[in-house]
Design a protein around this nucleic acid. Sequence first.
DNA 1: TTGCGTGCAAAGGTTTTGCATGGCA
DNA 2: TGCCATGCAAAACCTTTGCACGCAA
Lengths: 138, 138
Amino acid sequence: MARPEKYNTKQRDIIYGHVAALGGEHATAAQIYNHFRLTGAQIGRATVYRHLEELVGAGKLRKFLTDGTSGACYQYIESDEGCAEHLHLKCEGCGALQHLECDALGDIARHMADKHAFVVNSLKTVLYGICDGCMHKT
Amino acid sequence: MARPEKYNTKQRDIIYGHVAALGGEHATAAQIYNHFRLTGAQIGRATVYRHLEELVGAGKLRKFLTDGTSGACYQYIESDEGCAEHLHLKCEGCGALQHLECDALGDIARHMADKHAFVVNSLKTVLYGICDGCMHKT
DNA sequence: TTGCGTGCAAAGGTTTTGCATGGCA
DNA sequence: TGCCATGCAAAACCTTTGCACGCAA
């Protein structure tokens, strides 16, 4: 159990290194696949998807779903404790995905657990709304 | 602006009536389409999708995205004003959708607007997590 | 050598779009 | 009558899967 840790391949290192290098940035599977194509690293779509799902299962990567047929977005999860506790904001106007770094979120999660017996999964929750830029447009 | 309110067709009434009859239940586009096929109402896929998206845009319907390739789930929004005041909780264990009635939500929305210049859309925002019942199972 | 991991291609599914026809106002 | 909405089909899209080869241990 734990982690099979079967083989240590070059592709695994490349993919893992790339998503880790993304830091807080998010990327779709297609973007990641294209990045490898452009950088010369010949990695098949299937391999990208397989490792992405593997990393999601291992808790190293977060997966969320965008609105249209744009596909799923992946984001690296820092192992630091501080970064695990932030939510995401999706602007319905421009479609941008922002990160919410705020101490209040910890209070919200605690409030939900205490008063409503509901444990919020910050990794999956996305708040929808209108960002500052789009609010002043038209 | 308000609403174009173009034509009032029979299919529109059928689709609207069906999703309203679902109440709190959620259904995928394929399920809704199949329901019409079985009940004898001949309505094309495209028409179902078009009206579903129209209803989502009008705030009458909520659209979720499921994990796999199962497609999107739609759910009827009972009353505009009632649901605008609170958020929704989606349990990842049992799939139930709960309503969160809490004054703290007003504080959250206010905090987001003041500190982060982001207006939260309560109609579309869903908090994911584990409900009380599922937490004690297994 | 053994067998997992890879890559290519094709399948699977959901959603969108073009175009001719029918129905509402 | 004019024009929108519909329906059928095909396209586009993302994602998964089968199979033969290559590479790690």
